[in-house]
């Protein structure tokens, strides 16, 4: 464990807690893409299959349970909670996310570390996570100005993978034979997808104005 990875995990945890806070405090999920939340639930279930077979550390196991639990709870809340689900606007959340699932799975069949059930699903979860934010970013652009908690959620979600990139650089420099090319390349793509969001986030923060993404 290094400080970059720990900062990344904490930033990721904060993003999920901010989202839970927004839904719980406002009893509303307006501005949140259910499709992105579903993709994240698939990412965590597909990636943490080793939860019961490989024990890494208490921290690792606890965080996996928290991530799986929270992502499933958010999807449950947006689909089934009697108050929250009425605030979900499916007319604006129209990204065809199943194509993302199919594309990432096909890519994982060809590009993986080892052709085993667990490794193919691990690569699938890495690719899917890189593009999982797309429905949410599209929804943000469509819905113009959104509430601050949603913006903070996306910001922390983008920042966590940026910390992970520093973590991979650090591990590459300090650990012999450290090569996580699949995760590193996908992590770069994932962070690049946030580039314009980060730019407009910084502009709105500098001008102390609300975030305005160009339509």
């Amino acid at each position: 464990m290094n400080i970059f990875r720990f900062a990344g995990d904490m930033t990721h945890l904060i993003s999920i807690l901010v989202l839970l806070l927004k839904i719980y405090a406002t009893k509303s999920c307006s501005g949140i893409s259910l499709k992105t939340q579903e993709l994240y639930a698939i990412v965590f279930v597909a990636r943490y299959l080793d939860l019961f077979t490989d024990f890494i550390s208490v921290y690792n196991t606890v965080m996996k349970l928290v991530f799986i639990g929270c992502s499933l709870a958010i999807v449950w809340c947006m689909r089934l909670h009697r108050v929250v689900r009425r605030t979900y606007n499916k007319d604006v959340d129209t990204f065809r996310h199943y194509f993302l699932v199919l594309g990432c799975f096909l890519l994982a069949l060809f590009v993986h570390e080892k052709f085993t059930f667990q490794e193919v699903l691990w690569a699938f979860s890495i690719y899917l996570e890189a593009v999982a934010i797309l429905p949410q970013l599209v929804l943000l652009q469509r819905s113009g100005n959104v509430d601050n908690l949603t913006v903070q959620y996306v910001f922390f979600l983008g920042a966590y993978r940026a910390f992970y990139i520093l973590n991979w650089i650090y591990r590459y420099l300090t650990e012999p034979h450290f090569g996580r090319w699949i995760a590193s390349v996908a992590g770069l793509v994932q962070t690049a997808l946030y580039a314009d969001f980060f730019y407009y986030y910084f502009i709105s923060w500098k001008n102390n104005a609300k975030l305005q993404l160009p339509a």
Binding site: R5, D9, H12, R47, D50, D54, I56, N60, M63, K64, F67, E113, K114, E119, W122, Y164, N167, R180, A183
Partner: peptide
């Protein structure tokens, strides 16, 4: 075959 290191990252 090549030993794939366990995925110790989240």
């Amino acid at each position: 075959g090549r030993i794939v290191p366990k995925h110790d990252e989240l």
